[in-house]
Design a protein around this nucleic acid. Structure first.
Length: 317
DNA sequence: CCCAAGTCCTGGTTGC
DNA sequence: TGCAACCAGGACTTGG
């Protein structure tokens, strides 16, 4: 599942590959995954824009696009193309090779506007969006616009979302709490304030993106195991010591996830299709019925916040 | 048929 | 009692 470390792994690859490239065409193969934007608006606003930067907030990836170069009425505003990978989403970078051009069609035709039809040509079954990109170009007036790279948003289930924000990222991104990343804008003090008075189970608190942004089901179970805290504990019941342990563990597990390039227990792969290594370190997630590596007891499965949850009743209190 | 899961949405509950 | 904040659970999706 793409959680913060998986999304950060992808972001780093995109940040190395995309800035300076121009979006030549977009194919919204699955328009139902668009949020608050029509395929027509997308097709009008994106072509011609250069990608300036690739950012991340929680589990959202933000492509920051230059203002002023679009063909539509959104010309003067910076645009934020926001992508959420949902449960099974993948962002893949694929070289756009000359051999992809149909026989009989000129391979070089720099002045031609590439269309959505060309962007989606030959797309496999679960490809939901395809962005056709140019080589990196120095400025808005550059003439180089041969397609050289495709950004493919593939998502077997359709939990992923694409949205377009003007000037600012979409509101739901703005509603999120501080990024849970170790360098994020929070510490044990902030965590203590967020926990105070809450009766919801600790696990539900960790999954709530309005408190800390980026933690999902896998890392939540691993964090709680590492901290020796029960997922069922009311969030507001932690003492100072336990909050410190929780804060440390959040940072440690997410950092480990990023270092191992994500967790590929199900569908996650990076932009090249490679899996991560975090799944080898799992001590709680999915281990119900198996012995606890810390105390030897047996892990159990409960449902918390509607999510399957594995924990050790022996040493998670 | 049930399970997996992230987010949005709805409706019920709690506590000031 | 009124009200907002809070919290639980369903819908969505499709392959195992």
């Amino acid at each position: 599942m793409p959680e913060l470390p998986e999304v950060e792994t992808v972001r780093r690859q995109l940040a190395a590959a995309l800035p300076g490239r121009r979006i030549l065409a977009v194919a919204a193969i699955e328009p139902a995954m668009l949020r608050d934007v029509t395929p027509e608006t997308l097709a009008a606003a994106l072509p011609g824009r250069r990608i300036l930067a690739v950012d991340r907030r929680g589990k959202f990836i933000l492509l920051i696009l230059e203002p002023g170069a679009g063909a539509g009425k959104l010309d003067d505003s910076p645009l934020f193309l926001t992508i959420h990978l949902g449960m099974t989403g993948q962002l893949l970078l694929q070289e756009e090779r000359p051999s992809d051009t149909p026989v009989g069609e000129p391979t070089a035709d720099p002045g031609r506007r590439r269309g959505a039809v060309e962007a989606r040509r030959g797309s496999p079954a679960h490809d939901r969006f395809v962005f056709l990109l140019s080589d990196p170009v120095p400025g808005p007036d550059s003439e180089r616009d041969d397609p050289s790279l495709k950004l493919v948003f593939r998502d077997m289930r359709k939990f992923g979302r694409v949205e377009l924000g003007r000037d600012e990222p979409p509101s739901r991104v703005a509603r999120m709490g501080p990024d849970a990343w170790p360098g994020g804008d929070w510490d044990a003090e902030v965590l203590a304030a967020a926990l105070a008075g809450r009766r919801a189970p600790l696990k539900a608190f960790l999954l709530d993106q309005r408190r800390l942004a980026g933690i999902g089901n896998i890392y939540a179970d691993e964090i709680l195991f590492g901290a020796g805290l029960s997922p069922l504990r009311p969030a507001g019941s932690l003492d100072r010591d336990e909050i410190e342990r929780l804060a440390q563990e959040i940072k440690a597990r997410l950092d480990e996830g990023v270092r191992l390039r994500g967790c590929s227990i199900s569908d996650f792969v990076d932009t090249l299709g490679s899996g991560g290594g975090f799944q080898r370190t799992l001590r709680a997630y999915g281990r119900q019925g198996q012995p606890c590596v810390r105390c030897g007891g047996t892990l159990v499965r409960v449902v918390v916040a509607g999510r399957g949850t594995a924990y050790c009743p022996g040493c998670q209190r």
